[in-house]
């Protein structure tokens, strides 16, 4: 049972109800444009935002809740983790503030409380508190157009493919989030290309944490291996030196 969200870009009217619902539920303060913000409307106080594209296309941006999240795999203290229900949640009491998660997220999602003296990482948590009690997230609930809906990820995928089939030509034949970066819990249907949601427009289908796996798995071997090599080297060199000493002695005695 892994939950998710499906956002249909063609249905969104850009009314920002989801944004204000999210702000209300999570007690996020009013946002002011700060020098450290990015262009997509997300900020420490905005966990979701609407990106406007030409031709009145509105795309809701939020954390994708990757199936294999890069952010959680790099966090040195495990402050971020993927829950069984699908949400990638954040535990501020563990966090060090190293901001590695922000560096690693391919969608550029996590934001930082740059202005706070005790700063935390801020991002959508799929309303974990609500969904674990069987409710739906505030944003999907608020949407007047049912443009963004909540449900089982597998169900949502079915719905998405069905919509594509039933409306030929309306959508690009792709469900964004089905495979990208190993798949994400937040899915998109769209009639325009959504490549801009991730850093490179095409991040491939392999989960990012795999990239570090080999290196991390070889750590113990490198550790022990280096120790072995150094000891061996030391042993050889010592023996050589002893040999040299013996040789010298022999030579000395031969001279006498």
């Amino acid at each position: 049972m892994s939950k998710g969200i499906l956002t249909d870009v063609t249905k969104c009217i850009g009314c920002l109800q989801c944004v204000s619902a999210c702000k209300e539920v999570h007690h996020l303060e009013a946002d002011e444009p700060r020098i450290w913000q990015k262009n997509d409307g997300l900020s420490a106080e905005n966990w979701t935002s609407i990106i406007t594209k030409p031709g009145n296309r509105f795309i809701r941006k939020q954390c994708r809740h990757c199936l294999e999240p890069a952010c959680a795999s790099v966090c040195p203290v495990g402050a971020l983790h993927k829950t069984k229900i699908g949400a990638v949640v954040y535990d501020s009491s563990k966090c060090l503030g190293c901001r590695y998660c922000m560096m690693a997220c391919p969608f550029g999602i996590p934001r930082y409380d740059w202005d706070k003296i005790v700063p935390h990482v801020e991002k959508c948590i799929l309303c974990y508190d609500k969904i674990k009690d069987g409710e739906q997230p505030a944003c999907t609930q608020a949407c007047p157009q049912k443009a963004t809906i909540f449900g089982e990820r597998s169900e949502l995928l079915k719905i998405a493919h069905q919509r594509i089939k039933e409306n030929p030509g309306k959508y690009i034949n792709k469900v964004w989030g089905e495979h990208e970066a190993g798949g994400t819990s937040v899915l998109y249907l769209s009639d325009i290309d959504l490549g801009f949601l991730s850093y490179p427009t095409n991040i491939g289908n392999k989960p990012l944490p795999d990239k570090t796996k080999t290196a991390m798995e070889s750590v113990p071997f490198a550790f022990v291996g280096m120790g072995g090599v150094m000891l061996g080297l030391n042993w050889i060199i010592r023996r050589r030196m002893e040999f040299a000493k013996d040789e010298n002695k022999k030579k000395d005695s031969a001279d006498e």
């Binding site: 966090c75 203290v77 563990k94 060090l96 503030g97 190293c98 700063p119 935390h120 570090t212 991390m216």
Partner: peptide
């Protein structure tokens, strides 16, 4: 540099061996 430097010791008690930074 850390946002919460007083938590730096958390690495000792909370482990995430997948993270290169942890190592």
């Amino acid at each position: 540099d850390l946002g919460l430097p007083w938590n730096i010791w958390h690495m000792i008690i909370y482990w995430n061996p997948h993270s290169p930074l942890f190592e």
